[in-house]
Amino acid sequence: MDPVRIAVVGMGKIARDQHLPAIAGDTNFSLAATVSPHDQGVKGVPHLKSLDQLLAEGPAVDAVALCTPPQVRYDLATTALKRGVHVFLEKPPGATLAEVDALEARAKRVGASIFAAWHSRFAAGVAPARAWLADRHIHKVEIVWREDVRVWHPGQAWIWEPGGLGVFDPGINALSIATHILPRPFFLRSGVLERPENRSAPIAARLEFCDTAGAPISMDLDWRQTGPQSWDITIETDAGTCKLSRGGAVLTLPSGTEHSEDREYAGLYARFATLIRTGRSDIDTSPLKLVADAYLRARRDIVEPFHE
């Protein structure tokens, strides 16, 4: 089977740090082109300023990986799907739930695969944590996701705009793990969003969820963390404590701690190849629903301005 000819659209940090190396390491794909109006691309690979130009002038592609901000992703995905091109959506898959539903329906109509790529679900500790938790009784869950926005998103103004999610940009990674590994669905009871007075999106959030059996799930998000960063999910069960740390890369169970190599994006592209080969899509929106619910139900507090 010939490799899938893929174009990377949006050449920011995540594309260069994660997508390009993952594509280079997967024989199921060949990098056919890059697309960005602001970047010069990579040596030896055709580079175009827009997706419209790529689809009109070539080179031919079978798939696109959309690494742009979510606010513009719907139009790009629609353009690709109209040509029957398979679509890989960086997280979050869109700026709204309704547009993601529309993309899923369009992909089905044209027979293309579409993939909502929750990369943190492919962290090394996530699959074994899910297996261990499958038949456990959950007592309590604590999620602490604290990082320094100046380190991880320097100069990225779009992330503070409507649709950019603010602190939920990293926080949705934790929700993508929790919705994947916990044995029962959960939903929001209450919360507080802290929004800087000069920004449109929150810089911190404290949320209280519970699952359908009543187990409490707390979430602490903050983009003002300095020093050591925290990406931890601690789950107390009837068989002891399960903890995922370093964003899911490290799993600690009562039997001990497991450390594994970071293979998140390699796993994503392996999954995308399988979807294309089998003519299927994978576009779970459960993490985005929980973020939308936070905006619906949580109280909003205005806090001090944020400046880079």
Rank of each mutant, 00 (worst) to 15 (best):
Asn173Lys: 08
Asn173Glu: 12
Ala174His: 09
Ala174Glu: 04
Ile177Trp: 10
Ala178Leu: 07
Ala178Tyr: 05
Thr179Ile: 02
Thr179Met: 03
His180Asp: 07
Pro183Ala: 14
Pro183Asn: 10
Pro185Thr: 04
Pro185Ser: 05
Pro185Trp: 02
Arg189Leu: 14
Arg189Tyr: 05
Ser190His: 12
Leu193Trp: 01
Pro196Val: 01
Pro196Phe: 02
Glu197Cys: 09
Glu197Leu: 11
Ala201Ser: 13
Ile203Tyr: 08
Ala205Thr: 01
Phe209Gln: 07
Thr212Asp: 15
Thr212Phe: 10
Gly214Tyr: 03
Ile217Cys: 05
Ser218Ala: 10
Met219Pro: 02
Met219Phe: 12
Arg224Ser: 13
Arg224Cys: 12
Gln225Ala: 13
Thr226Ile: 10
Thr226Phe: 12
Gly227Asp: 09
Trp231Asp: 10
Asp232Ser: 14
Thr241Ile: 13
Thr241Glu: 08
Leu244Glu: 00
Leu244Val: 04
Ser245Met: 06
Arg246Ala: 15
Pro254Ile: 10
Ser255Asn: 10
Ser255Phe: 10
Gly256Thr: 08
Glu261Lys: 06
Asp262Trp: 00
Arg263Phe: 03
Glu264Ile: 03
Tyr265Met: 08
Gly267Phe: 00
Tyr269Ser: 01
Ala270Thr: 14
Phe272Gly: 01
Ala273His: 02
Leu275Ser: 00
Thr278Val: 12
Arg280Phe: 09
Ser281Tyr: 02
Ile283Trp: 07
Asp284Glu: 10
Ser286Ile: 09
Pro287Ser: 01
Pro287Ile: 00
Val291Met: 04
Val291Cys: 07
Ala292Gln: 13
Tyr295Pro: 02
Leu296His: 14
Arg297Leu: 15
Ala298Cys: 06
Asp301Thr: 02
